[in-house]
Amino acid sequence: MYDSGKIIIGLIIFAGIFTSPFWYDLSGGKEALKAPVLVLPTKADQQVCVNTLEYMRADHMVLLNDWRYEVVRLGDRTYQSPDHKEFNMSLTGTCLNCHANSAQFCDQCHSYIGETPYCWECHTEINKPENMQ
């Protein structure tokens, strides 16, 4: 092999970059394996969401975006769920009513997959100590 010093350094860099997730997650130990833990509402009147579980898991951001459009641009605040129940389109008034603690609900998955939604740039969370006055 010619230029073996340079070749070996190059190959180590290559293998290091492309196997970096292995080293990173192995060095993280059990921490890396921790899946998000959601604290769900327990009260009896808080067991029905505005849409199905599957839909909310995958598509809640679309729903919230639609709600924003309907409320802010069209002034319509009534949402009809698939089973024909009516809800008030409001993040603070409806969503946070049940999912009161965003750190134990929203942020769990969001920080796990690296999403930083810009909800809180306008909305405040009433239950947070710093927002209670």
């Binding site: 990173y24 997650d25 993280g28 921490e31 394996l33």
Partner: peptide, 8 residues
Amino acid sequence: FRFFMQPI
């Protein structure tokens, strides 16, 4: 890499 690494 947000899917590959934890923490990101």
